[in-house]
Design a protein around this nucleic acid. Structure first.
Lengths: 164, 164
DNA sequence: CCTTGACTGTTATGATATAACGTAAGATAG
DNA sequence: CTATCTTACGTTATATCATAACAGTCAAGG
């Protein structure tokens, strides 16, 4: 991969009323409420993810952090990203080996991700019903579900009409 | 990772009436029916996945293939594995960077995977309802869903009672 | 003060995956 | 039957993603 941030399109959740500033504000609020330390590296990483309007690879994040005077080695990025994911400020998109800001950091929610196979955009969709169905399937199998990764691949709104 | 096949437990689907031989037979039947070339490398890879009763990393597969006189380089394993996945004989488990035999190669189905975070076992669960819910969510977002990855993490039946 | 724990940074390495190219073997048209 | 086309296999080389292990920093509390 030499692409930076996957795509810059198809990002319904981050625009309009629920803008980037709002997401960041929600996140900061939540950090304060829960006594979580949103340190400079972590904050910058989160800001970056939000600004990216799409998923970023760890090395993309690292490059920017490094350019801004933070550490220059992979663990710096991975630590910040993993912390953000652990605490619900970001999500890991396994299909893309990438990370994306959580669109609704205020709520403790289950999300599904809609990944466009043309522009690599990532949209976070509410997945309450999906999770419920999955929980049922797990119960039926005698499996104690903890958390889940749900990633859909297809065409986003914007790319749907295009040739390839 | 230096582990070979993740776990050897918790594998309901491969035992009993629906045994390994049956899975292989279904797969071979389907290959013939659909005019797919289940070549020696591909067949051996599939047999290995079935025998593993759990997910295998590409390099684990490669090691075995190589020991059996097939190619010794990563692309050999990746090509076979990707082909098996593309044609519905196997699944890729992204959380584990691994692959597993499809438990029901005869049907064209949507599957969810239940991954134990203690023993790394992978169980394929029917995911009709889950997929239906996901499809709805996608439609609501104006997203044309093609296929999805659904991976649940938790405790399998066998590990559920244990300490850690 | 000085210990403790969380955080940041580093070096070094490990693990996963693909690009590009040459060869061989099977299918197909003439 | 043979020329040709396609698919698959194998290789070298390299790209990409991720973590282990350890050292320095700094704030909070005894």
């Amino acid at each position: 991969m030499s692409n930076h941030t996957h795509s810059a399109f198809c990002c319904p959740d981050h625009s309009g009323a629920q803008g980037a500033a709002s997401i960041l504000a929600q996140a900061e609020m939540r950090a304060r409420t829960m006594g979580l330390r949103l340190t400079p590296v972590r904050l910058r990483t989160l800001e970056m993810l939000i600004a990216a309007h799409g998923a970023m690879g760890a090395y993309d994040v690292l490059e920017q952090l490094s350019a801004e005077g933070y550490g220059t080695q992979p663990p710096v990025a991975y630590r910040a990203l993993n912390w953000l994911v652990e605490h619900g400020f970001a999500h890991r998109i396994r299909r893309l080996n990438a990370f994306t800001a959580c669109a609704h950091p205020a709520q403790d929610h289950a999300a599904a991700f809609l990944i466009c196979d043309r522009c690599d955009s990532v949209t976070e969709a509410p997945a309450g019903a999906v999770t419920a169905a999955l929980t049922e399937a797990a119960i039926a199998a005698g499996f104690a579900l903890d958390r889940a990764t749900i990633e859909a691949v297809g065409r986003c709104n914007t790319c749907a009409g295009h040739p390839s």
